[in-house]
Design a binder for these strands. Structure first.
Lengths: 331, 331
DNA sequence: CGCTAGAATGAACACGCGTTCAATTTGCGT
DNA sequence: ACGCAAATTGAACGCGTGTTCATTCTAGCG
């Protein structure tokens, strides 16, 4: 290390960079100044070997392009950076098969925590492969996380209460005269879409409406577009479509307007889910169920930090809500 | 290390995981099998200390939410992952002030290379702060990189030939009768927008057309929307708008259609830049100058790998082109 | 001035790995 | 069976840190 050649001992440099260490203030200042002149920074790799903390958070995503995910990554990176962590980004294979290969690969980097935004990896797998890292589970009430077998370990959870926003959306559409509902689903095994469909079904029943026609989707625009064409080829009576995400809602709207000749609030009402930045663009102006991204990400980071601070604490649960943002695609 | 307790010596394990090391095949297989059973993976931090390679590539981005950038990150992460590198993601401050603080912070992680997608950091700064990492410079012909001072070091460059696509776009618009052009700029000091404006100006002149009215933008939808309203409040005669990026073009189109009552191909023609995934959405169906993302990212990765393989090789330059993708916003 | 508690210091160690180098084993030709 | 080169093996070392632990310095009080 160069700082020592310029001045004094070696562990002094270590202490100068660690706030809790005891060192004479004048000495610390001197060392830090010289370190800056020499463009010296403590090596995090070496540091992580002895502290057991890499200050790395692994983030697994199937598709960074998707607006919702990219916005989540953006918020997450900002929040983590503010806490002194760096984001280690990994992509799953496009077929969403979240095999253990990637986890094993990631393990080598020793991330302190891992957030998997792909919803088809069980937290147990995460915990087994990356034993040192802190796994977080993004869940939805009613979903038991598939781990209710006796004695299964519990994980920190982030619960998303979807009911509120869905109720508001259906009430609004019904208020404007909607009678026959369709639901555009998301990726097949996605926890979020399963829960959303279940909830939509329940709320419709409670209000005396028929169960929804289910349109198979995968969160993408193109699939949503085609699913809408298919739907109206068979069934002309649907007058309200609830999409599992905003991008899907865009596909629905464009198919209705530009290919089926339907007017969107008047002939068919459309509601999305997420409230991405694009949803307020005038061409769509989408009414949608909002999940507050900043709130969600802050809760995630809070969970991670708490667990890192006290690895043996009892498992925690954070909860965030949803609410309807009213724009122009309902009435 | 656990693999040794199960069987034999220790450096054998190291060799088992390093393809080039000489070890009896049977022994290697046995060790790898046992390692897998014990869920063992070589520690990259420890490995990087001795090899000097962290297999980390730092990526600096001002805004992950932007479709173009998120798509670039997506492609880059995929390409890097295939080569055994992981993406270390950092966000600059929103004011785009790319201070050295972030670089110093990043230095601690010892990335093997750094790609700064913010266009207001000079490669010299990158090289000075992160001495070990390989800096890459994304440039545009005609731009000299501000480093032509005598004896300045040269960096690996990725040149983007913008002229071809711009010529095609302007020719097409002129062919459909466009006479008065406007140019929606991107972020103020962005190298890309400066070069695009210069080129648009030149091509217009060559074709005997007036210089463009410049609309101040910052790559965002909202600013583009307002800039369009401002433009037509002052000047009703513009019949063709060239936007510095696709998202800006969306803002222009929506302002024209939904607030100014203009029809888009007929009254005003619009062309964008980038060809992001959203550009084929039916509501916009944007004619745009495409930069092939996969091609661009592969060139970047090629530069990084070449430089890493031979740090003292003469500086390299890769070149990629642009071309017009014709859709529905011109004629 | 003398004593003591607390703060500041430095030497030694461990973290998990790749690498060098000398020692040992294997393989092949006679 | 013998010899020699090539392939394989293992002990020791260093990468750059944070952390004991024993030692020295400082300051405060009587």
């Amino acid at each position: 290390m160069v700082a020592r050649t310029a001045n004094v001992s070696r562990v002094a440099v270590s202490r100068a960079f660690n706030p809790h260490a005891s060192i004479k203030p004048a000495k610390r200042d001197m060392i830090l100044r010289i370190a800056q002149e020499l463009n010296y920074t403590p090596d995090r790799a070496a540091r992580s070997m002895v502290t057991g903390r890499s200050h790395l958070v692994g983030v697994i995503v199937p598709d960074v392009c998707s607006p919702w995910e990219s916005q989540e990554i953006d918020a997450l990176t900002t929040a983590l950076q503010a806490e002194g962590f760096a984001t280690l980004l990994f992509k799953t294979r496009t077929d969403l098969s979240m095999d253990e290969t990637l986890l094993t690969y990631m393990k080598g980097y020793n991330p302190d925590s891992v957030i998997a935004f792909t919803e088809n990896v069980r937290p147990q797998t995460l915990a087994r492969v990356l034993e040192r890292a802190v796994p977080i589970y993004v869940a939805y009430p009613g979903d038991d996380g598939n781990d209710e077998e006796a004695g299964a370990p519990l994980f920190d959870r982030l619960d998303v209460i979807q009911r509120t926003g869905i109720e508001q959306a259906i009430a609004l559409m019904q208020g404007y005269g909607a009678k026959r509902f369709a639901f555009l689903s998301g990726a097949r095994h996605s926890l979020a879409t399963v829960e959303r469909e279940k909830m939509v079904r329940r709320v419709l029943a409670e209000r005396g409406l028929d169960p929804p026609v289910v349109m198979p989707g995968d969160y993408t625009y193109d699939t949503a577009y085609r699913a809408t064409l298919n739907l109206f080829r068979v069934d002309e009576g649907v007058d309200a479509i609830f999409a599992a995400n905003d991008v899907g809602a865009f596909g629905v709207i464009d198919a209705l307007r530009h290919e089926l000749g339907k007017r969107v609030p008047q002939d068919v009402k459309v509601v999305g889910f997420d409230d991405i930045l694009q949803s307020h663009w005038k061409s769509y102006n989408l009414t949608t169920v909002k999940i507050d991204l900043v709130e969600r990400v802050q809760a995630l980071v809070r969970l991670i930090l708490a667990r890192l601070r006290n690895p043996s604490a009892p498992s925690l649960t954070e909860t965030i809500g949803t609410r309807l943002v009213v724009r122009g695609t309902v009435g």
